[in-house]
Design a protein around this nucleic acid. Structure first.
Ligand SMILES: [Mn+2]
Ligand SMILES: [Mn+2]
Ligand SMILES: [Mn+2]
Ligand SMILES: [Mn+2]
Lengths: 217, 217
DNA sequence: TATTATTTTTAGACTTGCCTAAATTTTTTA
DNA sequence: TAAAAAATTTAGGCAAGTCTAAAAATAATA
């Protein structure tokens, strides 16, 4: 079996690999896991010994097939638990991350598959992130950042890239929730803020910082 | 905060204290936690430092008020998660213990209280054990062991003292489930086995070993 | 390309929870 | 009640995961 810590590292490597081209660096991992580079190096050696990552000293890391399979398994658990916490227990989407961070490590495949049945096979978690399949593949979504679409386009909010409670609460307060449809009216040339129409009668300004963390389709 | 290990020790001390008179011994703890006496001594010193137990060298231990409050909190979590696993996910009562053993350590009071609401405030877990209140008191039950009632008495099965999958599966196979009512017909003088009637037409023999692990009222 | 600056790794150490072996205390038995 | 047995604690050590400080490798810059 693998420790909580190993599972968290695998998940973090997966996450960073999808965000940047090329190998994942020691420093990036240290920042994400809130540890020091020296500690990361220790763990990388251990994960490499277990054949979960490809690791060449000073050259960064990449998940092996087995490592990616495991990472996706943990992500699947995390996202299913988040669905449970929001849909069944009534938590807000800004409250569930830390609990899911612990629940994802409960060691039972049977448990997570029964949870999937119970939740009626959800495709997405409360943040719009796709839920990996039991066999370990990540469904593709093809969403775009709101900051990257053309003026005049009408789209639907499908997900968020930033998961901090502050950001999620801000969205909830301004009415920008998952599934909400909107039309991009104009982009301010000065600060790149966006004017979006969410109701026939209501339009609002969205900062570029918010827009590049909102996924739409 | 307290570690998983500390929480498990507190729970074990609570459990042993309810079974035997007087202080809980180092060896008893070593056996229950599947560790060695020397390791137990280390942990006892640590728990005593944190004021969670009363500990005098060579004299055994006893929970402090704070220690008991914490133990009951973990037991409450354990039993609520067991109810969830059986009632919502459809697990058998013989399958849930190990998962609950991990779930009980998820650090969120809000989570367990919402779970309680969601499960509609259950009073007992799938093994008939009472669920401690949020404020940390253990409801009394006053059940008797089946091995200790009089011939001719009619009773209802309310709980089990042994939680091993083997025992629980044996009960399920012989039809001795929670809530099942039965009448004690006779007690075999030779091996203390019991003849119990569970239907107007069906009676069956129950070994003394089984009977002293069945709680009735 | 030689010299800085940055990144990464190594060396050595700490904490937690566990172990074995030996010493000590308590309990039992002769 | 003294010796033997059992229970418990102490001593010393190990693995996981973390840290700081120093060394080594790579990248950036003059
Ligand atoms: Mn985690
Ligand atoms: Mn999520
Ligand atoms: Mn436990
Ligand atoms: Mn139970």
């Amino acid at each position: 079996m693998h420790s909580f810590t190993e599972e968290n590292y695998l998940k973090t490597i997966y996450y960073l690999a999808t965000r940047q081209e090329g190998e994942v660096t020691t420093n990036a991992l240290a920042e994400m896991t809130a540890t020091k580079a020296a500690s990361v190096t220790d763990m990388l050696r251990k994960l490499a010994d277990k054949q979960l990552i490809h690791y060449r000293k000073y050259q960064g890391v990449r998940l092996t097939e087995e490592g990616e399979r495991l990472a996706l398994k943990i992500i699947r658990r995390h996202r299913l638990w988040e669905v449970f916490l929001v849909q069944k227990l009534g938590f807000g989407w800004d409250e569930v991350h830390d609990m899911a961070e612990e629940l994802e490590h409960i060691r039972s495949d049977e448990l997570v598959e029964r949870l999937d049945v119970y939740l009626e096979y959800p495709q997405f978690d409360p943040h719009g992130d796709p839920i990996p399949t039991p066999t370990g593949t990540m469904p593709a979504t093809g969403y775009q950042k709101l900051s990257e679409i053309q003026t005049g386009t009408s789209v639907c909010i499908m997900g968020v890239l930033e998961h901090s409670p502050e950001f999620l609460q801000h969205l909830a307060r301004t009415g920008l929730t998952l599934g909400c449809s909107l039309t991009l009216r104009e982009i301010n040339a000065f600060d790149k803020s966006l004017l979006v129409q969410i109701q026939p009668e209501t339009a609002l300004f969205v900062s570029h910082d918010v827009a590049r963390n909102l996924l739409v389709a």
